[in-house]
C-alpha cells in the first residue's frame, strides 16, 4: 500500500454520489507520475476506485473490465452497484492467500426498477481480500485513510445536493492528502447524478 501511495474517498448525497482520488504515482518517496487516475467508470451510473499497489490497480481493472463485459453480454443489462461490489469482492477473494494489494471503493446510483422505484445512492468498500462494508455516509481508502476519516467525519452531512457534495468531497480529499506525503499531486472528482456525471480535476498543492 505504501509502495506507490494514493487515496480514494466516496460520499453519498441526495440522489447523487461522489467519488474522488488523488493523482500521484510514486515509488516510495520518489514521485513518478502526476496523472495516475485511480477511479474508473463501469458505466455512467457506477464508478469505482482502486488505491493500493499500482501494478494491481491495472491488473484488477483489466480483470474487472473483462468480467463486467461478460456480465453485460450474458445478462443483456447493466450491472448494479450492489452486484458489482460482490463481483469485485469475489475477484479479490479468489486470491485469498496471495492477495491483490488493493482496497477498492465503489460508488454508484442504482437505476429504478419495478421492485424498487426509488433506490438509494450506494457506496461500498472492501479490504484486500474482499470483505465488504456498505456505509451510509462515506467510504475512504488508501494511505491517507485516517486523515480522510477525520475530515470527512467533520465536514460531511446528510442529503447534500450535487454541488455541495462536490465541495464537501473536494475539501475532504484536498485537506487530507495535504497532510499525507504519499498522496496528492493533483486530484480528480466525479459526482454521479441521475442525468449526468460531473468530472472535475482539482487544483491542488504539488508538493
Amino acid at each position: 500500500m505504501e509502495y506507490n501511495g494514493g487515496s480514494v474517498v466516496a460520499m453519498i448525497g441526495k440522489d447523487c454520489v461522489a467519488i474522488a482520488s488523488d493523482l500521484r504515482l510514486g515509488q516510495q518517496s520518489v514521485g513518478v507520475a502526476m496523472n495516475f487516475d485511480k477511479v474508473f467508470p463501469v458505466n455512467d451510473k457506477l464508478y469505482y476506485g482502486l488505491p493500493g499497489l499500482a501494478t494491481d490497480v491495472y491488473t484488477l481493472r483489466e480483470q474487472l473490465r473483462f468480467r463486467v463485459n461478460m456480465y453485460r453480454m450474458k445478462e443483456e443489462r447493466e450491472i448494479t452497484p450492489k452486484t458489482f461490489t460482490h463481483l469485485v469482492s469475489s475477484t479479490l477473494y479468489e486470491k485469498r492467500f496471495g492477495p491483490y494489494f488493493i482496497e477498492p471503493v465503489v460508488a454508484g446510483l442504482p437505476s429504478p426498477t419495478e421492485l424498487d422505484p426509488h433506490p438509494k445512492p450506494f457506496i461500498s468498500t472492501m479490504d484486500t481480500i474482499g470483505c465488504i462494508t456498505t456505509p451510509k455516509d462515506f467510504a475512504v481508502a488508501g494511505t491517507a485513510s485516517n486523515k480522510l476519516f477525520g475530515v470527512a467525519e467533520g465536514l460531511w452531512e446528510p442529503d447534500l445536493e450535487p454541488e455541495d457534495l462536490f465541495e464537501t468531497i473536494s475539501q475532504t480529499l484536498l485537506n487530507a492528502v495535504d497532510r499525507d506525503a504519499l498522496s496528492g499531486w493533483g486530484a480528480i472528482v466525479h459526482v454521479i447524478t441521475h442525468d449526468k456525471v460531473i468530472t472535475r480535476q482539482l487544483r491542488a498543492r504539488m508538493d
Binding site: 485516517n146 486523515k147 476519516f149 477525520g150 475530515v151 467525519e153 467533520g154 465536514l155 473536494s170 475539501q171 484536498l174 485537506n175 487530507a176 495535504d178 497532510r179 491542488a204
Partner: peptide, 19 residues
C-alpha cells in the same frame, strides 16, 4: 492518538487551507 484525524480538519477550518 487522533492527530491524523483532527489536524487536517483544523488546517481547513482554522487555517482556511484549500479555501
Amino acid at each position: 492518538a487522533a492527530q491524523a484525524l483532527v489536524q487536517p480538519f483544523l488546517d481547513n477550518q482554522i487555517y482556511f487551507k484549500n479555501q
